[in-house]
Nucleic acid binder design. Structure first.
Lengths: 360, 360
DNA sequence: CATCACGGTGAGAGCGCTCTCACCCTAATC
DNA sequence: GATTAGGGTGAGAGCGCTCTCACCGTGATG
C-alpha cells in the first residue's frame, strides 16, 4: 500500500524530484508522455503511482483556461421537470456523453427569475467551458441571460424567442417535430381517415408549434378538404388532453382520428374517448408523440406514437457543444450533423420514427 | 453600456490600475472590502463595474484551496432514481441550500461499478470541497470508494455497511425511521388492532431495517401477544407490496392491520385488500411511510402515513457538510443537531410525524 | 517633542501547473 | 574531423489571485 506523503497532496515538483527529472518532463508524462523517452516515462509513471499524485485542477485550469466542466441549466417553470421522464432521459444522455469526454456536469437549477443574476454571474465567471440549456418557454428571460454571459451554449429544443434564428445563430438539438407530426398524420390519412383533429401543445413552445405545422402539412398534402384543420389547445398534460378531446368531440362529433402533440395528452384523450363510448381505433384512431415507453405501451389500447431518441438528443447536445469548444474528440462513426460541410457548428435535427401500436 | 475590454477578461490588475490602487487593495474590496477606507472602496467598485470584472475562479481556488463546489453522487442501481420523487425532493433541497451557501452542485452520476474509478479520481482530484451521497444499498462498493477519496462527505440515510458506525464516524442525515415506525404501529394499537402485520422494505437498506425495529418496539410495548410479529418481505415497489399483502393474508387471514414500510407498498397492499373484499379501515387498517403526497392522498382510501421532510433533509445534508468544512455560515434559527455540545459534527435525525387520513 | 500604537496600504512571494525556448546530445552529412 | 539537423530535456516565465509582511501616516501617549 503506497501511502502518499503525509498531509498535503504531492505536487508535480515532488513527482519530478522523485523521478529525477524536471517538472516539465513530469508534466509531459502526466499529459500523455508525447516526446519523452521510454525509460523516463516509466520512471515518472512510477513516481506518480508511488506518491499517489493527482494533478491540481485549479492550477491546470489557470494556465490552460479550460476547466473541463459544463453547466446544465435546468429551469423549473412548472413543478415537474425532474420527475419528467423526458428530462431524466435527456440528462442521462448528457451525463453519459460528458463522462465520455471527461467533463463534469455542473447542475444549475433555476427556480425563478430571481436566480437569473446568480446564473449570469456564474456563467460569466468562467467556471464552466460551456453550457447546455433547454428552450422551454419563449417568453422566458433566461435565454437572454445565457446569451449575455457569452458562454458557448447548446440548446435542447429549437429556441423560439425573438431574434433567435435571425441575428445570433444558436446551436440546438431537436427532433424533427414537423416531420414527425407529418408522418403521424399521413399515417392516419393512409388509414382512410378524413376528419383528423389535432390536440396541440402550448403555443409558446416551438416543439408544439412545429407539430402543428406538420399536422397542417399532411392535411394539405392529402387535400382532405383542406381548411385550417381541427385544432384544440392543450398544455402537454394528461388533463388538458382530456379536456381538449371533449371539446373536439363537441365541435366535430364526426371526427375519426386525433393526433395529439404528446403521449400524455393522447392518454387523456383516450380516456375521454373511452368514456364517451368511442372505440379506438375503430371509431377514432389516435396517435401521440414522444413514445414515452412505459406510458404509451400501457395505454388502452397501446398508443401508436412518434418516437424520438431523447437520450440520444442529450448526447448530441454534448457532442455539438464539444465541437463548438473545438474539442477534437472525433467520435467519428455517426454523422448526424445537419450541416455536413460548414465549419460553423450548426444545429442538429434528429429523425423521428412512427411506432405502430394498436391505437391507430 | 460600459463595454468591457475587447477580447480577454479584465484581471484584478486592470481593476487596480483603473482605480489607482494596488492589486492587494482591489482584492480586498472584491472580497468584501474589510479594512479599506470608503473612498477607495468606491473607486474600486466603480472600476469593477466599468470593466465588468469577474474574479478568475481557478486562480482563486489555486491559492485558497477552496473551490466552492460540492459533488452530489447519485448512484443508479435501479433505473428509477431521478424520476423517484424522493430523490427529486432531496436534490431540490440540496440545490436550494447550496445556492444559499454560494456553492455549486456538481452532479456525479454513477451507473455502475465501472464508474468507481472515475469517481474516485474526481473526488480525489480536489475538484470539490465535499460530497453528498446517498446510502442506498449496503453491499454497494461505492461508500468505500468515497471513504478512500478522503473528501468530507455527508450521507443521506444512515449508512449500514460494515464498520460504518464503528470505526470511522460517517455523518449522515436521516429521518427517525424507527421512531416513525413505532408511532405508526402505536397508532394502530391505539385503534384497538391486535393482529398487526408489517410489510418490510429491502433488508440491505437501513431505513427498512430501522422501520422493522420500530414495528417490533411498538409490538413489545403493547405486549400484544408479543412474538416476532408478522412480517412479509417487500422491496419498496407497488407490486412487491401487493405480493406481500397477499402472502400475509394467506399466513394470517385474521390480521386486522398492516404497517407498510413505504407508501408505494402500502398502495399495493390497498389494492390487494380491495380485491379480496377486505374493507379499509374497518376490516384492516393500513399505515404507510414517507407521505409521498400526491400518491398517499390519491389512494383509496387516502393513506394514513408517516411524513418525513425530504427536502428539509436535503438542506440539512448541506448544512452538515458546510459545518464539517468549517464554514461559518451560522444560519442559527433552527437547531436540529443531534449532538448539542460535541464539536465534531455528528449526524442529524429529523423527526417524523404521523399524518392521519382515512386508511387507519 | 520623541515615542508608540494602530489602521490602511502596497510590494512581493507564491499557489501548481503548462508551455515556450534555449540547450545538449546523438547521428547524419560534407 | 567539422558541421548540421533534430529530437529530448530542463530552465524559467507566467496564468490571476490571495496573503503575509513591511511600511507609512495619523493620533494618542510619555
Amino acid at each position: 500500500m503506497p501511502e502518499p506523503t503525509p498531509g498535503a497532496r504531492p505536487t508535480l515538483e515532488a513527482v519530478a524530484a522523485r523521478a529525477g527529472v524536471s517538472r516539465a518532463t513530469a508534466s509531459r508524462v502526466v499529459n500523455g508522455g508525447a516526446g519523452v523517452r521510454r525509460p523516463l516515462v516509466e520512471k515518472v509513471s512510477r513516481a506518480v503511482e508511488e506518491l499517489g499524485y493527482v494533478p491540481n485542477h485549479a492550477a491546470r485550469t489557470l494556465v490552460t483556461r479550460r476547466n473541463g466542466a459544463i453547466a446544465v441549466i435546468i429551469a423549473e417553470p412548472e413543478f415537474r421537470v425532474f420527475s419528467d421522464p423526458f428530462f431524466e432521459q435527456q440528462v442521462r444522455g448528457i451525463s453519459r456523453e460528458l463522462t465520455a469526454h471527461d467533463a463534469q456536469l455542473v447542475l444549475l437549477w433555476v427556480e425563478g427569475s430571481g436566480d437569473y443574476d446568480r446564473i449570469a454571474r456564474y456563467l460569466g465567471g468562467g467556471h464552466v467551458d460551456g453550457a447546455l440549456a433547454f428552450s422551454l418557454h419563449n417568453d422566458d428571460g433566461l435565454p437572454a441571460v445565457i446569451a449575455r454571459a457569452k458562454v458557448p451554449t447548446v440548446f435542447g429544443g429549437r429556441p423560439g424567442w425573438p431574434g433567435a434564428g435571425a441575428g445570433q445563430q444558436v446551436p440546438y438539438v431537436d427532433c424533427d417535430n414537423r416531420g414527425g407530426a407529418r408522418e403521424a398524420v399521413r399515417h392516419l390519412v393512409s388509414l382512410g381517415r378524413t376528419r383528423i383533429a389535432h390536440i396541440a401543445g402550448p403555443r409558446d413552445q416551438t416543439s408544439a408549434l412545429d407539430r402543428i405545422d406538420g399536422y397542417r402539412d399532411a392535411l394539405l398534402d392529402a387535400a382532405t378538404g383542406g381548411g385550417p384543420g381541427l385544432i384544440a389547445q392543450g398544455d402537454f398534460t394528461v388533463d388538458s388532453g382530456a379536456r381538449a378531446m371533449a371539446e373536439l368531440l363537441e365541435r366535430a362529433p364526426d371526427l375519426d382520428a386525433v393526433f395529439a402533440a404528446n403521449d400524455l395528452m393522447a392518454s387523456g384523450a383516450l380516456r375521454v374517448l373511452r368514456e364517451r363510448g368511442r372505440r379506438v381505433p375503430q371509431d377514432v384512431a389516435v396517435v401521440g408523440f414522444d413514445d414515452m415507453t412505459p406510458l404509451a405501451e400501457s395505454c388502452d389500447p397501446p398508443l401508436t406514437t412518434v418516437r424520438q431518441d431523447i437520450e440520444g438528443m442529450g448526447r448530441l447536445m454534448v457532442r455539438l457543444l464539444m465541437r463548438v469548444l473545438g474539442d477534437g474528440t472525433g467520435t467519428g462513426a455517426d454523422e448526424n450533423a445537419d450541416e455536413p460541410g460548414a465549419g460553423a457548428p450548426g444545429s442538429v435535427i434528429t429523425p423521428t420514427r412512427l411506432v405502430r401500436r394498436a391505437s391507430a
